[in-house]
């Protein structure tokens, strides 16, 4: 990744919850257009790292910058406006709305029109609304949820809800996407399709940071892997390097190899 320009810089970030050190002295970079995976045993601090990068949590120390903008003090919606969009580990949809309406809500960033224009239903507002609807339809097709468009998101299967979560994030027009365990709860064929989806996302130039326990998937899809254990980076490198790293094997065996 020598020639790439840097999308995100995480610099000496630490997070403490009272006495518990969730992350200590974490530093790494993600290049533009890269797929980087952040892996580690349960409780290693992966979700906490995501929360720091997206403004849901203020780090006890260190700094995060996205495309040369320091994220300190920015609210989550302001960070989203920079094009840095995340998904959530626990399923997160707008449960009472249809899948289609979920995506329309997700398209918030593209749908800003003056309120008065919307109330008076001026041509500009109507054109914007048409564009949003078209875009929502395209996104549905992209993630393969057309058939579920008019079902309440909360009524979908777990795996489908994960897909809605990703589609929502895509609706927000990310330049970098943070995915927190996107395939957990998906069956094998859903996972396979999801890998294709991730590659498709990357091919559009969207940088991806992935947290995932599904090791075969991480190994196939990642350009680079960062391994976290007890809040500390213990290894970093290509899938080849990580696969053979004794410290990584040790960390995973120590936590029960079944999860890895």
């Amino acid at each position: 990744m020598t020639a790439r320009s840097i999308a995100m810089t995480i610099d000496q970030v630490a997070v403490r919850f009272g006495g518990l050190v969730a992350i200590s002295d974490m530093s790494f970079e993600v290049g533009e257009g890269e797929i980087v995976s952040l892996i580690g045993p349960n409780g290693a601090g992966k979700t906490t790292a995501f929360n720091v990068m997206t403004g849901f949590l203020t780090p006890s120390a260190g700094r995060v910058a996205y495309r040369n903008t320091a994220l300190a003090g920015l609210k989550p919606h302001e960070i989203a406006d920079l094009g840095l969009i995340r998904t959530f580990q626990r399923t997160s949809v707008f449960p009472n709305d249809t899948v289609y309406d979920n995506l329309l809500i997700g398209l918030h960033r593209q749908g800003r029109v003056r309120l008065l224009d919307a109330i008076l239903s001026l041509p500009g507002a109507r054109a914007s609304e048409r564009k949003l609807r078209q875009r929502a339809g395209e996104l549905l097709e992209w993630v393969g949820l057309e058939r579920r468009a008019h079902d309440a998101a909360g009524s979908l299967s777990y795996g489908e809800q994960r897909l809605v979560g990703v589609a929502l994030a895509l609706a927000a027009e990310p330049s970098m996407l943070l995915l927190d365990e996107p395939v957990s709860g998906m069956n094998a064929s859903e996972t396979h399709r999801f890998v294709e989806l991730i590659r498709g996302i990357r091919d559009r130039g969207i940088t991806i940071l992935l947290v995932e326990h599904d090791m075969p998937m991480v190994m196939t899809v990642s350009d680079r892997i960062v391994v976290l254990n007890y809040g500390r980076i213990i290894a970093e490198g290509t899938p080849e390097v990580i696969r053979n790293d004794p410290a990584v094997i040790e960390a995973y065996l120590g936590h029960g190899a079944g999860r890895a």
Binding site: H77, A80, I85, R86, S92, D97, A118, I119, S128, A172
Partner: peptide, 28 residues
């Protein structure tokens, strides 16, 4: 008009799942 507009959808999103709503850029 308001609740059926883009703004109305933001309101509904916030009510249903605030964390998710802010993550897609909605200013609470």
């Amino acid at each position: 008009r308001l609740v059926h507009s883009h703004f109305g959808r933001s309101m509904r999103g916030l009510m249903e799942n605030e964390t998710l709503a802010v993550s897609v850029g909605i200013d609470v």
